[in-house]
Computed example of a mutant assay.
Amino acid sequence: MQTRHKDNKSTEPQRKIIHCDADCFFAAIEMRDDPSLRNRPIAVGGSSDRRGVISTCNYEARAYGVRSAMPTATAHRLCPDLLVVPGRMERYKEAALQIRDIFFDYSELVEPLSLDEAFIDVSGSPACYGSATLIAEEIRQRVFETVGITVSAGVAPNKFLAKIGSDWNKPNGITVIPPAKVDDFVQYLPVDKLFGVGKVTAEKMHRLGIQNCGDVRAYSIYELSELFGSFGPRLYDLCRGIDQRPVKTSRNRKSLSVEHTYAADLPSVQGCLGQLPALFQQLSQRLHKLTDGAAASQYRVHKQFVKVKFNNFQSTTMECVTAGTPRIAVFKQLCSDSFQRGDGLPVRLLGLGVRFEDSSMDDPQQLPLFTH
């Protein structure tokens, strides 16, 4: 008797998973920092005369067939006008950490997949009235305003569907797959979209007449196991939209911050300083919640920082080494110093934050979105 799931219903509380994926991340940072690169095919990678490869490219380059991991020489043959710029990992890490901090504003359950993407479980988040869709939209808007790049997002009851959703309306899009629509969405999903189905497996499926998940459902779990080995049971679940994997993070957050964009620009340093007590109170409350109990030893404050964005959308961040409980006097001094960098420009956004001690020095090529 077949005893696997009959459907994707569960008595457990419905999960709300968001998958965020930055659009052509490295290239997006290069275009942000040098607007003259926009609207022309560019790529980040190594030189063709040194057997370099493409790390990523913008959508103008992709229109010519340029892809990540492609030899730079091949990319130039496909797109003779392609401009290849060297990577700047420290710059990408800086932007990635900003994005990471935004994710953590909505949940402590943030799981990185690579430098430019992550899962966020917002099932219990009170933000945006508990709406995962509104949270995803707010995250996308904040990343655009704070970091200056676009992020695509998928919202679904599980990781499998959320990841597919983030790729569905790229670039700069969002796809929401509510529980009631899972079955219809998955039924017509091409098998090529399934995680774990590579070129060889897809070709085998096509030879069997399997084009979409609805076709896979015609096979029992035992038949799928005979055809596809250990991947069979997983395939049985995926074609029904079932994915019970939890969102889990193995890393502590490296910083905590609060910020506010003001409806009316703050015209003076006195005006900025007047806003600090309210921000400091918010930060203190969040810090107390994070470090309450056993977690205190994991989060020892190492630095305080202030972020200021002026009305011309240029921003600056200043920080200093500190220890113990954050002090508002330190934030005031950092704020005053930051304001001077704007040459008198009004301020549209203020942020306060702390950085925690970090004894690890992970390889930035591995999980740089969540490491220093």
Rank of each mutant, 00 (worst) to 15 (best):
T3W: 11
S10R: 15
P13K: 07
K16T: 07
D23I: 09
F26A: 10
A27W: 03
E30Q: 12
M31Q: 10
R32Q: 08
L37N: 14
R38C: 05
P41K: 04
A43D: 00
A43C: 03
G45P: 01
T56I: 07
T56C: 09
C57H: 04
N58L: 05
N58E: 06
Y59K: 12
A61F: 01
Y64T: 03
P71L: 02
T74A: 14
T74P: 01
H76V: 12
P80K: 08
G87P: 04
G87L: 05
R88I: 10
M89T: 13
Y92H: 12
A96Y: 05
L97G: 10
R100P: 00
R100M: 14
D101E: 11
F103D: 04
F103Q: 04
P112D: 06
L113C: 11
S114E: 12
D116I: 07
D116R: 06
A118W: 07
I120K: 01
V122P: 03
I135F: 11
A136F: 11
E138S: 14
T146G: 07
T146Y: 09
G148M: 07
T150W: 03
A153T: 08
V155L: 06
V155H: 02
A156H: 00
N158D: 09
L161P: 02
D167F: 05
W168L: 10
N169D: 12
K170L: 06
N172A: 15
T175P: 02
I177D: 01
A180Q: 13
A180L: 09
V182W: 05
F185K: 03
L189D: 01
L189R: 00
G196I: 08
K199R: 10
T201E: 00
R207N: 13
R207T: 12
L208Y: 10
Q211M: 14
D215S: 05
Y219K: 08
F228P: 06
S230D: 15
G232Y: 08
R234C: 12
Y236C: 04
Y236G: 02
C239D: 02
R240A: 08
K248Q: 14
T249N: 15
V258Y: 00
T261G: 04
A263F: 13
D265C: 09
C272W: 09
L273M: 10
L276Q: 09
L279Q: 07
H288I: 10
L290T: 07
L290D: 05
A296C: 10
S297H: 03
R300P: 00
V301I: 11
V301G: 02
Q304G: 03
K309C: 08
Q314E: 15
T316M: 11
T317H: 04
E319C: 08
C320W: 01
T322A: 10
G324V: 05
P326M: 03
I328S: 03
L334Q: 02
D337Q: 13
P346A: 08
V347R: 01
V354P: 03
E357R: 12
D358L: 03
S359H: 11
D362Q: 13
D363G: 05
P364M: 05
Q365E: 14
Q366A: 14
L367K: 08
F370C: 15
H372C: 09
H372A: 09
